[in-house]
Simulated assay, not measured.
Amino acid sequence: MSEFNTLSAMGLTDVNAISHYKLSRQDNQEVLKVYFKRPAGSAMPDSSTFCFDCNTVVPADAEAASQSKDNGGSDPVLIAAVNELNALNKSMSNHDRRMQLVNELDRLEQIMAAKLQELREDLNRIV
């Protein structure tokens, strides 16, 4: 567990339950959403969301300026968490990764089908 200190500090103690993560930017925040593998009917959450403010502080010296430029102003905790999540992701077997991608594709297909149906219904109401 010692290799995932940042994730543990964020409350993600069971790293084996992590399936994948997504990183996005909203307004002046970077949002890290971590997804978990849960059995059907589990009362545990399917994901956890963490928000990090974008760094707008002016660096005090050349070294700090270089570091800030290299990480795009991202929070150091976020960078450490993403590095740990990437290391965890690399340790997943190809079969696990493949299943994760298949599940993600299935989910996206369901979302797109529902949205297309909604648009068709709206179009039929107009005509």
Rank of each mutant, 00 (worst) to 15 (best):
F36H: 00
N89K: 14
F52Q: 04
R125E: 06
Y21K: 10
H95C: 03
N83I: 02
L32A: 04
R98A: 07
K22L: 03
I79N: 00
Q117Y: 09
I79C: 08
S91Y: 13
R98I: 06
Q67K: 10
T56N: 12
L78M: 11
L108H: 01
V57L: 14
D96V: 02
K90F: 08
E109I: 01
D14A: 11
L85A: 05
S19R: 15
A60S: 14
L32Q: 04
E118D: 14
N28S: 14
V31R: 12
R25T: 15
E30H: 12
L105D: 04
G41P: 05
L123W: 15
H20V: 02
V34L: 05
D27Y: 05
Q117S: 13
R120M: 05
M10G: 06
V34M: 04
A114L: 08
T49H: 03
A60L: 12
T13V: 13
E121L: 09
D106A: 06
S48W: 00
N16D: 13
I111A: 06
P76E: 03
L7C: 07
R120K: 15
L116V: 11
N103M: 07
E121C: 11
A43M: 08
R125D: 06
D53M: 11
D14F: 09
G41L: 08
R125I: 11
L108S: 00
K22M: 06
R25K: 15
N89L: 01
M92G: 04
D46K: 02
I79Y: 00
N71S: 07
N83C: 05
A80V: 08
K115P: 01
